[in-house]
């Protein structure tokens, strides 16, 4: 009946418009975690010592960590708690390394809030609800291009692919492939050891609707300086690691830059024969706690590393 259709159409349009106005859009999540764990065998927690050497070798690492409030929106911690366990392995040959890393989010939770018409739902990830979830897998390769494994200056390059895994609503993934290309440097001068990095995080996702959300590709930077203290067949390395990122589209803007620091301590075997253990712990805070940098963070891990073949290392 045409007359009926004419009468009901405006009412239907008004109803739909009203419903649309009163139902806030729900913003999708993204990968909040900003700590890029260095490949197993790289020494530091976040940076790379570039000391690959010898014949065929490798490392297996088990790490865990907790970050407090890495995502706040207008003061509300949308992601208030973020705990993870990470398993990673690497294979080295001479000055080359390939690695695989997989992270299990153990707890990701927070408080929901709204920004304008958009509702931002907090994640609720726990081992019970998500017993086998893995967030984005990391597959990468590194090479030392200049310098020996124990020299005063080493220069290297690395690339890493992030394979999407998990759900965006859990704030553990962007749901897209991502890439990291880094230029790294490191060196040792007596008891002083240092490492740094500069690179690009190729990130397609742009979420302007959430303050602190990703804004596309990012510039990565980091620097670590420490003291290496020999202690029998082991060495203790202690020092700060500072790292961060800024979105290229608004470089070093207040809402698009995050910087955090970790005071890291590691104890590692130094013998050249047989597998060695490395234990490490880091405690730190967001120096500029925005854009994924947490209020505070702790990281710990153990690593088994070694080489099965031997090639002469040239310092």
């Amino acid at each position: 009946m045409p007359s009926c259709s004419r009468a009901t159409a405006p009412a239907l349009a008004i109803a739909i418009a009203t419903a649309a106005a009163s139902t806030p859009a729900i913003a999708d999540g993204f990968a909040v975690e900003r700590l890029r764990l260095a490949p197993p065998g790289a020494g530091w927690i976040a940076l790379d010592s570039l000391d690959m050497r010898g014949g065929l070798g490798g490392a297996v690492a088990l790490s865990g960590g907790y970050a407090r409030a890495p995502l706040r929106v207008d003061g509300t911690p949308v992601v208030a708690n973020q705990a993870f366990a990470d398993v990673a392995a690497s294979v080295t040959w001479d000055r080359f390394r390939a690695h695989l890393g997989l992270t299990s989010p153990l707890r990701v939770s927070g408080r929901s809030t709204g920004v304008g018409a958009a509702r931002i739902e907090a994640p609720d990830v726990s081992l019970g609800r998500h017993p086998d979830t893995l967030s984005d897998a990391r597959v990468g390769a590194s090479a030392r291009l200049l310098g020996g494994p124990a020299g005063g200056f080493r220069l290297g390059a690395s690339a890493e692919l992030r394979v999407p895994s998990g759900d965006r609503v859990d704030y553990v993934t962007d749901g897209t492939y991502r890439g990291v290309i880094l230029s790294s440097f490191a060196g040792d001068h007596g008891a002083l050891t240092y490492a740094g990095q500069l690179g690009v995080h190729l990130r397609p996702l742009d979420v302007p609707s959430i303050p602190g959300g990703p804004r596309g590709s990012e510039l990565l930077f980091g620097l670590a300086v420490g003291a290496r203290l020999p202690f029998g067949p082991t060495a203790i390395v202690v020092g700060p690691e500072v790292f961060g990122e800024t979105a290229l589209r608004s470089a070093f803007g207040a809402q698009s830059t995050g910087v955090e620091g970790l005071l890291s301590l590691r104890v590692e075997g130094t013998a050249e024969d047989g597998p060695q253990l490395r234990a490490r712990v880091g405690v730190g805070a967001g120096l500029d706690p925005r854009f994924g940098a947490p209020e505070w963070r702790m990281v710990f891990g153990v690593e088994l590393f070694g080489r099965t073949g031997h090639r002469s290392a040239k310092p």
Partner: peptide
């Protein structure tokens, strides 16, 4: 494709 941890 879904990635998950089958065993640990």
């Amino acid at each position: 494709p879904q990635i998950y941890r089958s065993r640990a």
